[in-house]
Design a protein around this nucleic acid. Structure first.
Length: 569
RNA sequence: GCACCAGUAGCUUAGCUGGAUAAAGUAUUCGGCUACGAACCGAAAGACCGGGGGUUCGAAUCCCUCCUGGUGCACCA
């Protein structure tokens, strides 16, 4: 496809004798359509060329060689040079590309590169509540999008399956295990046991010591403890899998902390041999004061055992060797900002190639809070993902019942719509923002929501279903799509791939979520203003063709976010 | 106390590598189904872009400072 910015930048560059790549970054897209399709602020050159913007603008306008196929018109308004592109060429190229390449992605940007995405990472034996949803959904979307751009993508679920907490849980099971039947709702019951033993540990030091002892035994491979731990893990995974199935979350590897616990020795050895490990308040730490980080990174606790940082470092070593990654992103709440800052600094001391340490990136997201305050498993103040999904699915079912009672497979559709609403809600805003969870907001499927995108898609399907002959691209009269509504859609479609690239540059799926809203709005306006199935065959075919293109991109974009599209709703 | 993040319409947000009149949704009021799906479209109203300084031809955007909220700050993850 023509890169309009590049073409314009090159032509201006010729005219003023400057480097076109710099000029390209100056080019903007005017908010107001009256100001053209692309705009060049001439003020930017005033200093460099030592001339008034007006004079420069005139000179450029006069000397620039305009290829009429690409640029129709150049205007000077204030200090801007406004470019009006040839609508037919962009329309033709967009539709032609979608015809030939249904995925509408040409970029080779990810070819030969490997990206690791660590996400979801729940603690086993604890309920999967809506606080874990963001990492699962954001990570899933990023995973899909990197993959779509050609990256070799590896999704890792780094389970919290290690640590003193399991010593406690084992102790709790020993004491009250016989009161519970773990064949059903295992996690809830384990969480209950954990809550009880945790309270007991606070009251009774000897219980806490038993818990610590259990963990030590677990580490040493004690048969009873390992057997219990495995059982807890399996029960938890089984329940998590139910949620992952609903959300469509997929992982290439489910590798928990325990896996790396056996690999920490090398980390300690390397740091020791480099003299970076120093004793501080009884623990072995790496001092990071010279890196601007006040808090040293603990590698070995006072009792000589490892800590999560040590295991994270071991995982970096392992992943560098195993996957030869170019980029490795960690999706967690911003609570862990300092932790990742620390381990990324310490990772530089492990003797790894710079490629690997440069590729490390923490992708933080904001807190989810309940109106009643911060969520806490310990205090029982949380909303389970399962409950939330059931509520939204039920709501979707109710609305279908009301609006489209004859629909087939209502339950299936309600599932797609209800889950789509939840996923979209977590992806629609910048990930760094905190969210106060409001169930009423979740259950409102109007406006900028997942169901709105699905509804728009369903309308495209419905239109296409109504026509008997699907037009071929070669028969489309491009110039029939010159109206403002069609053109708005075309411009959005033109930006689809660029939008995906932006998502990966910022690790920000909300950019795609917004794009899909914009496209849905543009199509809804088009739909209301233009009758599609009209007598005039040329107009009809052109509009149907545009409808097909919108449907394809909506579906693809939504699926990249993890949202399934129903054909009817 | 130190560090990081956030503060834009009643509410939820977009815009933040500086650019033309600050953009949406929601809530409120009004209009549109004898056109292909009204979970929609259109309109009205709603903003000292947290306050104050500065840099610049130009600041929601960059710098300084203050205020508010959140998070982190050593053996939990």
């Amino acid at each position: 496809m023509v890169n309009f910015k590049e073409e314009i930048a090159k032509e201006i560059a010729n005219s003023v004798n400057l480097n076109w790549t710099d000029l390209e970054t100056y080019i903007e897209i005017p908010k107001n359509l009256d100001n053209g399709d692309y705009s060049f602020p001439v003020f930017k050159l005033a200093k460099e060329l030592k001339k008034a913007p007006q004079i420069i603008a005139n000179e450029i306008k006069q000397t620039i060689k305009i290829n009429e196929d690409i640029i129709k018109k150049v205007d000077i308004v204030g200090g801007y040079l406004n470019f009006y592109i040839n609508k037919d060429i962009i329309t033709k190229q967009v539709l032609e590309t979608i015809e030939n390449n249904p995925k509408f992605i040409n970029s080779q940007i990810g070819k030969g590169k490997t990206v690791l995405v660590e996400y979801s990472s729940p603690n086993i034996a604890k309920p999967f509540h809506i606080g874990h949803l963001k990492t699962t959904v954001i990570g899933g979307a990023l995973y899909n999008i990197y993959k779509a751009l050609g990256y070799n993508t590896v999704g890792i679920n780094y389970l919290g399956d290690y640590g003193t907490q399991f010593g406690k849980l084992i102790e709790g099971y020993k004491l009250f295990g016989n009161e519970y039947d773990l064949t059903e709702d295992a996690i809830d019951k384990l969480a209950d046991i954990y809550m009880r033993i945790n309270n007991l540990c606070k009251e009774d030091e000897s219980v806490l010591n038993n818990a610590r002892e259990n963990f030590k035994l677990l580490e040493q491979g004690d048969e009873y403890c390992v057997k219990l731990w495995k059982e807890f893990k399996e029960l938890s995974l089984k329940e998590f899998q139910k949620i992952y199935d609903l959300l469509g979350s997929k992982f290439d590897f489910i590798t928990g902390e325990a896996f790396f616990a056996t690999k920490t020795e090398e980390v300690v050895d390397i740091l020791k041999s480099k003299g970076k490990l120093v004793k501080s308040e009884g623990a072995m730490v790496v001092d990071l004061a010279d890196k601007g980080i006040d808090t040293p990174c603990i590698i070995l606790k006072s009792d000589g055992s490892t800590i999560y940082a040590t295991r994270d470092l071991a995982s970096i070593l392992y992943r560098a060797r195993t996957y030869n990654y170019d980029k490795s992103i960690y999706i967690t709440s911003y609570e862990q900002n300092l932790h990742f800052k620390q381990i990324f600094e310490v990772a530089k001391l492990l003797g790894l190639d710079e490629k690997y340490t440069d590729g490390l990136e923490h992708v933080p997201y904001g807190f989810v809070r309940l109106p009643t305050g911060k969520m806490s498993t310990r205090l029982g103040n949380f909303v389970k993902v399962e409950t939330l999904l059931n509520d939204t699915i039920e709501q979707a079912y109710k609305i279908i019942e009301e609006k489209n009672p004859d629909l087939e497979d209502k339950q299936e559709v309600a599932k797609k719509v209800g889950i789509g609403a939840v996923i979209f809600n977590d992806l629609a805003t910048s990930r760094i923002k905190d969210e106060i969870f409001d169930i009423n907001e979740m259950l409102n499927f109007q406006g900028e929501t997942g169901p709105y995108i699905q509804y728009t898609y369903v309308r495209t399907k419905s239109v296409i279903e109504k026509v008997d002959a699907i037009p071929k691209f070669k028969d489309i009269k491009i110039e029939k799509l010159n109206d403002e509504y069609s053109q708005k859609i075309i411009k959005l479609l033109y930006n689809f791939e660029n939008t995906l690239i932006q998502v990966t540059e910022k690790n920000e799926p909300s950019i795609l979520a917004r794009f899909l809203i914009d496209l849905s709005k543009a199509y809804s306006s088009f739909y209301n203003e233009n009758k599609i199935i009209v007598e005039d065959e040329e107009i009809r075919n052109a509009r149907i063709y545009l409808t097909i293109a919108v449907g394809k991109i909506l579906k693809q974009g939504a699926e990249l976010l993890g949202i399934q599209m129903p054909n009817k709703m």
